[in-house]
Design a protein around this nucleic acid. Structure first.
Lengths: 316, 316
DNA sequence: GATTTTTGTGTAACCGGTTACATATTGCGC
DNA sequence: GCGCAATATGTAACCGGTTACACAAAAATC
């Protein structure tokens, strides 16, 4: 009853003041569970993420937390691991405890994801297979790759090798496909090479060592993430190949190491994506947003030392 | 009623099966708010962290999430920023929505923290001023510093300079104090030097440049974190001072960059601390743990290239 | 076979808010 | 000064579980 005084209704300013005083004097705090029960709202957003490493995770959560805080929501967190069972279980636990979900599941197929999502719960998908009827935020891998390939070509690269990420990963596959497309549209006469890596620096190093061992010609390495690019850098430096004089190197993600070591790469505003995801979800919860939209984040080109001067097209 | 069948009580196995079938058939999911209201438990743990950067945040949350998941708890997250008002507000929002709190507040004084904590709510403090009656987990800065000073001395260092972290920061001050203590107890005859940095690589670089400019003698730099150590490394390399031949360098934290660049440092198992914090909190909630304990995590010495060979005690 | 004990099932109060509705109060016009 | 409208306050039902208790049925005891 006295709670109706929470903001609206016909209440005399006098009474309102008295109630306010009393609550303060008694240190009264409304019971969240009771309120949530009667209003069928929890003011909480469920966040389901894969087992992320590095600072990616922190950045994303930072952005989401900021946006959620500003809107009076709290974040309920649940990491999940690779398989569908765990994803399903994680989302199930959230059910009934949150008003909406933010899900990032780049390792799930569209069907698996559809099955795991609790029906009827508003959700925003981040870098996941697109699901009809839901909001979706994605990194524009195509756009980013296009920027970098253009940059490498402009610098004079004529033999760009792409090191792909973990097989089956959405981003890895999009980046590899985008590399082929970019080459086909920007420089169809140049050779296209894709090597299968797994996102680790070791795989980058090993693959470049193999290239060198078999005497392949190349004047640029474009890896699907920064760690593999750094592995490649390591391999070239060890052998004594000049970077960027003889071979240019580029990565993707812009991890802190990349800046420190002067690696050219593509920067993704992770915190911004987190913020945006929450903003989307909340505006849907408030009924202010269309039920389903899609948005792509174009990464920014960070041209640094490893692609600094024009390579002359040396062989290794 | 039929809910009493959730596990115990006098229920015929037959009835139990029928209920189980029905719930499955109807896709019934118990309402979390209602349960929480009647049981006065939320199965949620509140996590209040400072505005952390780098992978520290992610590691900590990963550890907590793992431990919470295993015990059937969910994590309610709230970052807070530097000041007390926000800390207080963050913890207030959690009140009534969580069964317990994990708080990390290295920037608050003991009094500020005591004031911000909701009274009566079980809590575990991580790397914060110790509060009587609460669990506390801390990084054993003393133990870690002692390990490193011993290591540097064993390698022949005779003039170790310490670069301290941000003034007012708990860890920064403990590490500086521990450095003095370690020197006093292990090598009282050797000089003690503490320079005031601020945890940034710039400050490390600048301070070492100053040392070089004024012709000070030193054969080892022990910084209060890795970034400052890397700044120092940068300064020395630029001038042409041999590392580790002429000057050894050591940091604290073991960030990914440190491993990559061969920086000797002290590793803290962040995820382990997160796990432990949740384990502690839950066992207190279950009434299985004493109301208040303290535990220190001793960092592990990571001896790498920057302290590899014995310096001969050169001057700069 | 009747009574006591045990076990199974049904009933209702309670957790602490929100909100629709009924009642009490005030203000206004005539 | 009276009646009606508008506004303020009180009351009670409801959200959906949990749990203590009452009662019914089955099993055990003599």
């Amino acid at each position: 009853m006295s709670r109706a005084l929470n903001g609206h209704d016909h209440v005399s300013p006098d009474t309102r003041r008295k109630v306010a005083d009393a609550t303060r004097a008694l240190g009264y705090v409304p019971n969240a569970a009771a309120r949530s029960l009667s209003t069928a709202k929890s003011q909480a957003i469920g966040v389901v993420l894969p087992d992320l490493h590095g600072e990616f995770f922190g950045e994303l959560v930072r952005g989401m937390d900021k946006a959620a805080n500003e809107r009076g929501y709290l974040l309920l967190l649940s990491n999940m691991h690779a398989d569908r069972a765990q994803a399903s279980q994680a989302m199930g636990t959230m059910r009934g405890r949150v008003d909406g979900l933010i899900v990032m599941a780049p390792q799930l197929s569209a069907e698996e994801l559809a099955e795991a999502l609790p029906p009827g719960l508003p959700a925003v998908l981040v870098n996941s297979p697109v699901e009809a009827g839901l909001h979706s935020l994605r990194i524009d891998n195509r756009g980013g790759v296009m920027l970098m390939v253009r940059h490498l070509l402009a610098r004079g690269a004529r033999n760009i090798v792409h090191i792909a990420g973990l097989a089956g990963n959405l981003d890895a596959e999009e980046r590899a496909a985008a590399y082929r497309e970019a080459m086909a549209s920007l420089a169809p006469e140049l050779p296209v090479t894709v090597l299968q890596g797994d996102f680790t620096d070791d795989s980058g190093e090993r693959l470049v060592q193999q290239l060198l061992a078999q005497g392949s010609e190349f004047d640029a390495v474009f890896a699907a993430n920064d760690m593999m690019a750094l592995g490649a850098l390591q391999a070239l430096r060890t052998i004594g190949v000049g970077v960027p004089e003889q071979v240019a190197i580029a990565g993707f993600d812009d991890v802190p190491l990349a800046r420190y070591l002067g690696l050219s790469t593509l920067r993704v505003d992770i915190a911004g994506i987190g913020e945006r995801a929450v903003a989307r979800l909340v505006s849907e919860l408030d009924g202010k947003a269309p039920p389903s939209t899609q948005e792509d984040y174009v990464p920014a080109l960070m041209a640094r030392a490893t692609t600094a001067s024009r390579p002359a097209g040396h062989k290794t």
